[in-house]
Every structure is written in C-alpha cells, then in structure tokens.
Design a protein around this nucleic acid. Structure first.
Lengths: 239, 239
DNA sequence: GAAAGCTTGTGAATGCGTGCACAATCGCCC
DNA sequence: GGGCGATTGTGCACGCATTCACAAGCTTTC
C-alpha cells in the first residue's frame, strides 16, 4: 500500500525486522541519519542488499547523506505492521510456553500477549504474570474478541496439528509453530516453524564437516549398530 | 567423507534433519521402506527435491521400491554427525535458558547438555535437573574437558558478543545464538541465529498484507506520532 | 522370460536472490 | 555558483535453488 507498490521478495521481508532493530538502536543513541553501509555493518548484511531491500518499500534515502533514522524506522514499522500491537495467543504452557509468556521482547516490539491456553486441566487457572492459563477450547471466543490474532503453538508435536486445526477454525491466519510437527493448513494461512533441535542438527553438520579431528563417527560403514536414542516427546520443553 | 563427495548445498543441509525426523517416525511405525513421495508428504517438501537432496549424500534408493528406512536414517544421521552425541553448553540461564535446559528434544536427538553457565553470582549453584549452574568464566575449562562443544547463547543481547568472544577464545566453533544481537566471529566459526521476535514480525508482515480488513495502521502518512514502545531488554526471556 | 508398473537419479529449464558497478543526485565549501 | 566528496538507487550478470520431465533400473505378474 501507499508508495511501495511492487511485491516485496520474501528474503527482503525476512531482513526488514533486522533493519528495524538496528534503527531502534541508532535512535536510542540519538543518531539522526545512517548510511546503507553503517546499517549493513550493524546487521551483518551487504550494503547493496540493504539499499535494494529498502528500495522495495519506497525511496526514503537522500543521496550524499543517507537515511533519516526516525523516518525509515517508521516506514519499516508500518510495512511490517508493527503499529498495530497484534494480540498473540500462546497454546501450550510448558517450559517453552512459559519462557515465551515472560519474554519482554514480544511486548517491546508491537506484540501483546492476549491469552495463555493449555489443554491440561491441572494447568488451567495457573497464573503467569498478569495472565491466567485458560482452557484451549476457549480459543474461538478469545479470537472473536480481538482483531487479527497471531497464534503461537508450543505444545508437543503430537498435539500440534489438532491445535492448528482449532486455530484455523477460529479464524487465525498467522501461526508460529515451535513444535517439531509439520502442519498442514489452508493456503491462506501463514505458518512459520522454529525447530530448536533442527538448528542444532544443522550446526552438528558443519561441526562434523569441519576439518576438526574429533573421533570418527561410530559404526561407520556398518549400520547394524543403528543408533536409536529414545524418542520421548512427552517430557520435553513443551509439556 | 566416504561416498557423497560432492559439496552438499546449504539448502539441502537445512532439510536433512527434517527427513531424519520423518524417518524416525516411520521406523517407530515399523515401515521398512519409503518412497520419495511419501517422505515428501511427511515433511512438506517437493518429491523431486527430496530425491535430489538425498542424492547428494549417496545412492541409497532402489528404483521401483524406494528407500530402506533404517539404512537411510543411518546415512543421514552419519552425514549430520548425529552419531557423536555432541556436548552442548548453554550460557545464560534465564527463562529461555531454563526451557532449553529441560528440553527433551536435545538429548533425544544426539545432543547432551554438558553444562549450564551464567554470569550472575546469584544464579550460580542453582540446580536444574541434574546440573548445577556454573560461572560463565568456567567455560574454557569445560570446553577443554570435552570434544567439539557446541555453544548456545541465551543471554540478553547486550552480553551476547562478550559471551561469543569467550566461546571463540575457548575453542568453540559452532554457536547457536538466541539473542537478538548480530555476532561477529572469525570465518571458521559457524553461527546460527534464532530470533523469536523476528519471526513474529515476519508473520505480522503477512498478516498486514493479507486482504484482512483490520484497522489501517495508525498515523499513516504522519510519522510525527512515532511509535516508540520501550525497548527494555533486561526483563526478558534471557535474564 | 517378457511385459507392465513403480520409483529413483539426474539433465535441463526456469526463477529467485545476491552483489558489482556506476550514473544520478545531494550537501557542503570555497 | 561551481566543483567536490559522499551516498543512493538500480541495471546487469552471475550463481544457487527449485521443479519438470524422463531415461534407467528394479520388482512383480503372468
């Protein structure tokens, strides 16, 4: 909407929050303008890429000077929809759900935790901060009370699809999924998945393929001794 | 090493853990073979992409039949280095650090939490599960005791670079960074960043650009009323 | 033992993202 | 008021990733 009419590439969307954070920092240190190169250094991005990214949302820079910090911050915030203070509902109040519930970074960046839900009756009514846990089935009612709720799933993998279905039925169209499950949802629903173990496994790959001479993998070439660590999802961060 | 001699593309590495998890599930349900299409359905990936990804690590399929679940699981696990039971050290025992410490998914997938560290003296010696929190400065000693430690940073953003420097100095070459800070490290160190607020902001973008008729952004075109939610990183998930 | 039916592995085409390089433009100074 | 240094915005070329399409190859059936 407004100026930037071209479609914004996904890769750019993923970096806009990075610039937003960098600009916030500059604002606090009273800088009024910033060059693409300075912003690039702060965010670990190539300077040309910064300029191209910003060009998708409009022409807010001044040649020979740079970008006005305050204005650019506002424009990016508007593009990202951070002016709206989106209500967030967290389903699954295990270790991770609790950590998310007390995460200052959410409320500090345009999000407001509207409710904590859990299907376990022994968890219902427990108090975290100024919110009490409510039964998962209250979801539809809560969504109806707010505009454009964003759903967060921090249940074990086994319950995730069920929760997602409930979210979709309640009218939620944006879901952040912390469970290892791969969710299937209608096309008009956006799901982002954050998988903690997966990230470690990717690191493991790099560690393994670095020259580091750590012990060779066990059972190389002989997979009779198949490693099969138990796969118990119940006593996890989710429950 | 061994068969797959070609370099494996990053995009493929990021998907291997997905296949690994899918295969684990198949193994539990006693399936002995699986086609690329079935695996694709389970993981939400295109079938041709599955085959190409797998072809990078070797030729383990049988035409007309599919892949042997047990063998493929072993091969992917070996490629990812999951046979090694990597020691993981978590620095920053706030809400998130605690959630990670009790995360069953880590120990269930080839990782073992070797130590919990925090710079705050009031946190030191607190017990979580069977581990006591130790001072951050013990890091070098702990790394020396183990092979190929993977570092996890769950401190507030302000302390992250300092912790990263300490990790690098201690010999750690793989870091998982949950803080919002952008770390600068030597080229031979791999850093992956998981930013919870960033994920929500990406969702916010999609929500905003969906046709949904939710209220237009406040202060459109007039950025005098700049949104400036307070940016207090101290009372967060990290502390 | 030949034919039919699957399924893999991969060549080739396409699309997306990245980064260089440079013209266009601005502010500043003399 | 003109020249100079700085910085943006973007055309273009390159490389990586995705997807299609199909030959190669295995198993089963008759």
């Amino acid at each position: 909407m407004s100026r930037g009419n071209r479609r914004i590439p996904d890769a750019t969307v993923a970096r806009l929050p990075l610039y937003h954070r960098g600009l916030l920092e500059l604002l606090r240190s009273k800088r009024t303008t910033v060059s693409s190169e300075a912003l690039a250094d702060m965010t670990g991005v190539n300077a040309a890429k910064v300029r191209k990214d910003l060009s998708y949302i409009g022409t807010y820079g001044t040649r020979g000077v740079g970008y006005d910090v305050e204005n650019l911050l506002h424009q990016i915030g508007r593009e990202l929809g951070l002016t709206q203070n989106w209500p967030v509902v967290i389903v699954g109040i295990g270790n991770l759900g609790r950590a998310l519930a007390s995460y200052g970074g959410f409320s500090a960046r345009g999000f407001r935790i509207a409710a904590l839900l859990d299907a376990d009756p022994t968890k219902v009514d427990q108090q975290f901060g100024d919110l009490a846990v409510r039964p998962t089935l209250d979801l539809a009612g809560i969504v109806a009370e707010h505009d454009s709720v964003i759903g967060v799933i921090s249940t074990p993998g086994g319950a995730a699809q069920e929760v997602a279905d409930l979210m979709v039925a309640s009218g939620i169209t944006s879901i952040l999924n912390f469970s290892p499950a791969v969710l299937s949802v209608p096309d008009d629903v956006t799901v982002r998945r954050v998988d903690l173990a997966l990230e470690l496994q990717i690191l493991s790959f790099h560690q393994q393929h670095r020259g580091n001479a750590a012990a060779e993998p066990i059972g190389d070439g002989d997979h009779a001794s198949l490693l099969l660590v138990e796969h118990n999802e119940s006593d996890s961060v989710y429950s």
